[in-house]
Design a protein around this nucleic acid. Structure first.
Length: 204
DNA sequence: AACATTTGCAACCGCGTGCTG
DNA sequence: ACAGCACGCGGTTGCAAATGT
């Protein structure tokens, strides 16, 4: 145990805070309190639930572990593919990426990226560096990444000039996560289909 | 079996942003 | 306009479990 150093808790910093792994008892207290009072004002929640934790810590525990409908582990190929596509498009915007994967948290996706996908990509890059003369068949993921890159270009072009009608790309719509709950890839395919040529080019 | 190294994940930390008085 | 607070994000760390030697 150690005093909480972060700014949020500085006001009551004299209080000794719990740190490290959460216990079952702490989880129960937090979940019970939020079930009754809702997930607002984390500092108050931490205090009133009788937890010697920073509000910040409570929030993280709730969002990443206790929240209902959380999916844990077993990231499917479909989800992995989606993460790769979105990362190509958005970069390390983990919360935005997580927003497209119902039940997944930004922390989980970030961890998954750092421990699995970044290594996969490095391997692929190394492999392609070692055999530059041969042109191996691109995987679905690589193809989609190429297509996403094409979409990115379109976004940039669109910001410079009038959008070409049949190629119009609405960034706001793309980043509008209000249609939560629809776990299909239609929304992305719609954008990817904007440039069939990019697909064909990626194939050659 | 014992030790060293790597891996995977939960949690922490600092910073930026938005809201409120 | 300003200060203080609360929240959210992304990077980083710590540590247990798994794996290698």
């Amino acid at each position: 145990m150690a005093p909480c150093k972060n700014s949020e808790a500085s006001a009551n910093c004299k209080m000794v805070m719990n740190k490290g792994a959460w216990t079952v008892e702490e989880d129960r207290k937090l979940a019970d309190y939020i079930e009754v009072h809702g997930a607002k004002r984390w500092k108050t929640i931490a205090f009133k639930a009788g937890l010697k934790r920073c509000g910040k810590s409570c929030r993280l525990r709730w969002l990443n572990y206790l929240r209902p409908n959380i999916k844990r582990g077993n990231i499917s190929d479909e989800e992995e593919d989606l993460i790769l596509r979105l990362h190509k498009l958005l970069g390390n915007r983990w919360s935005l990426i997580a927003g497209r994967l119902p039940g997944r948290t930004d922390n989980e996706i970030k961890n998954y990226w750092n421990s699995h996908l970044s290594k996969k990509i490095n391997k692929k890059e190394k492999a392609s560096d070692e055999s530059p003369s041969t042109q191996p068949q691109k995987s679905i993921t690589e193809k989609t990444c190429d297509a996403v890159a094409a979409v990115e270009e379109m976004v940039e072009e669109g910001s410079k000039e009038e959008a070409i009608p049949e190629r119009s790309f609405d960034v706001n719509q793309f980043l509008d996560f209000s249609m939560e709950g629809t776990y299909d890839l239609e929304w992305l395919n719609k954008f990817l289909q904007l440039d069939e040529d990019a697909w064909l080019a990626a194939d050659n």
